[in-house]
Write a protein that binds this DNA or RNA. Structure first.
Lengths: 356, 356
DNA sequence: CTGAAAGCGCTAACAC
DNA sequence: GTGTTAGCGCTTTCAG
């Protein structure tokens, strides 16, 4: 393995010159640079990452910290990762995905000066990792948001916009009995951001359309989805559409719908929010969904982090990204307004009270 | 940030002593060790990873290289990761997941002496990464197998056993028209290990039971699954069971079955191979599956790698792990043997030619 | 525009 | 059982 000395000797320059052509930290004449570059390629030189890191106090590694629970990475999260990795690679940084479950592990990783910065995924409202990294002096950017974002950089999904557009889509199809299946009650109670924010946004959106917001909570599993649909039908027997933000429950919901002889979308329209096209396509029919801005989230987070790390630019980047409506096969116009309504010609806006 | 010198000074010992209590590379008296440890905690000392790496020529980082395509990590792959991370952590190593898509990126990573070793996931029959890492002198272990495994360490799933048990399960339930839905024809032609090995194992298993092996290929998507089921029914209209090893196609298969009014498991039993419980539970009914030895694969791979890296033990670990049959709701006894058979009492073994 | 040399924080001989 | 010290390969002053 050739070292910088070897390159310097071969190019007949000093080591510092070699170093400077590598880092670009000071101007080098074209002639010298060419000599050095030639020597490098001739020797197949690659700088030693550890030595660089020690001398420069910069590892050129940024971490993507994701709590890996058993559920695995959905396509959405995977998109974060690929987007982030690409952005890091472009900047000459390595992105390492650290499946740190343990807070102590994280503390260790951070204090060992192994990371120039970190992107946190799956951020909780009260996330201990934030404090741990700040104490260790590791710059960070969140994908998601903590409760108090003062002085923190983050990139997150615009849940308000997402819910609003999803509801608008259903309303424009004539639906007026829309049930929202959220994450679990426990998640909401714990203040899990996406669950809380979508809940509020749903209430606002429905109210804005003069409709009554009905929300059901669901455990993150197929069984949870089945139970949620059962509860939804109990609470709103005349529902014509369900809005879901729970990739783990959605298949249970669809299964239970089928079990009850309700066809999608003929009898019930379904919209899945913050969903990747891949998952949407798994269902039959494919799901109309609000597609998450997957790789963009990851890319933007890393770019903001690197700006922070290198001291280039704002160290307080806060940004929301929209989800895009992609209409597939799980939504269609609401079944002809209730027989009674049709027969008496009332309620053409479809915004009447339930049970009419 | 406290350094080793600070610790040494506070404990009134030499730096080397501190270093040795850290590495355990030579015996230290209990008294000194205690002093040093006390000093360390008092200062909140954490060794600098870069300095250690430079001096010891060991980064204590092992890479888990996974080509991240858009599909994302299934629960199965995620289990590899968590198993591997846990094993690395226990040994005091960091596991970094490197989403290297580009071979040049990988070469760079390897030549920069950043990795003490690597575990390769999603191994292809002809995998360029193997050569790249070997040239760079990076020890490696595969999860999966290349075509020629001479001199290579690997851990893989025992596809023979998996197929054999899955078929045996169906046969024991009285099924005799079993269709296997494999990966795509292209994947098989390219020599994709799991596809080729399960194909051969399926033929062997069916033949062993005196049954005719019918295999259909499917693209890795819901649409591919739907098409495959259509093809399967065309080729074997009287099929009573389908065996699948394609997590992306399985939902398409199930959807198409429903579309055609075929109930699972009443009309058709379904077994999914190399599947995580999480995915199996997504379906309604939950899928009977051959559960993959997820985290064990990751753990064993890392343990083998670390033995290799530290020179402790065989650097040629080759091991196959079985999948476990977990019976859920998608299989049941075959529909009463064909009416004709029953009425004429023939073919009790169910091994007659198709179309009887 | 280029060189010389002093570290970065740690490990691992080599001494005792 | 412990101390001394020469590097590991690079970056970055400080000089020219």
């Amino acid at each position: 393995m050739a070292t910088m000395h070897d390159v310097a000797r071969l190019a007949r320059v000093s080591v510092s010159t070699v170093s400077y052509v590598l880092t670009g930290a000071r101007p080098i004449s074209q002639a010298t640079r060419d000599k050095v570059l030639a020597a490098m390629t001739e020797l197949g030189y690659q700088p030693n990452a550890m030595a660089r890191g020690l001398a420069s106090r910069r590892s050129r590694i940024v971490g993507l910290l994701m709590p890996m629970d058993e559920r695995g990475l959905g396509a959405t999260e995977t998109a974060f990762v690929t987007g982030a990795a690409a952005a890091a690679s472009v900047a000459g940084y390595h992105l390492v995905l650290s499946p740190v479950g343990d807070l102590d592990d994280l503390r260790r990783l951070a204090s060992q000066r192994m990371l120039d910065g970190a992107v946190l995924m799956e951020v909780q409202v009260e996330d201990e990792r934030v404090g741990a990294l700040q104490e260790a002096g590791v710059p960070l950017v969140l994908i998601g948001r903590t409760g108090d974002t003062t002085g923190l950089s983050y990139v997150d999904i615009d849940f308000d916009q997402t819910v609003r557009e999803a509801v608008a889509h259903l309303v424009s199809l004539g639906h007026d009995r829309i049930v929202y299946v959220n994450h679990s009650a426990a998640a909401i109670a714990a203040g899990y951001g996406p669950a809380v924010r979508t809940r509020d946004a749903f209430v606002a959106a429905m109210t804005g359309h003069g409709l009554e917001p009905v929300m059901i909570t669901a455990e993150d599993s197929a069984a949870g989805g089945r139970a949620a649909l059962t509860a939804a039908l109990a609470q709103a027997p005349d529902l014509t559409a369900v809005l879901v933000m729970n990739e783990n429950a959605i298949f249970g919901i669809l299964g239970e719908l089928t079990n009850r002889g309700l066809a999608v979308p003929r009898d019930v329209s379904v919209v899945s929010m913050v969903t990747s096209p891949q998952v949407a396509e798994l269902a039959t029919p494919a799901l109309t969904a609000m597609t998450s801005p997957g790789s963009a989230l990851g890319r933007i987070a890393v770019e903001a982090l690197l700006r922070h790390v290198t001291g280039t630019g704002d160290d307080n980047h806060q940004q929301l990204l929209p989800c895009a409506l992609e209409v597939r096969g799980s939504t269609c116009p609401a079944p002809a307004t209730l027989a009674v309504s049709v027969s008496d010609g009332s309620d053409p806006t479809g915004s009447g009270p339930p049970g009419t």
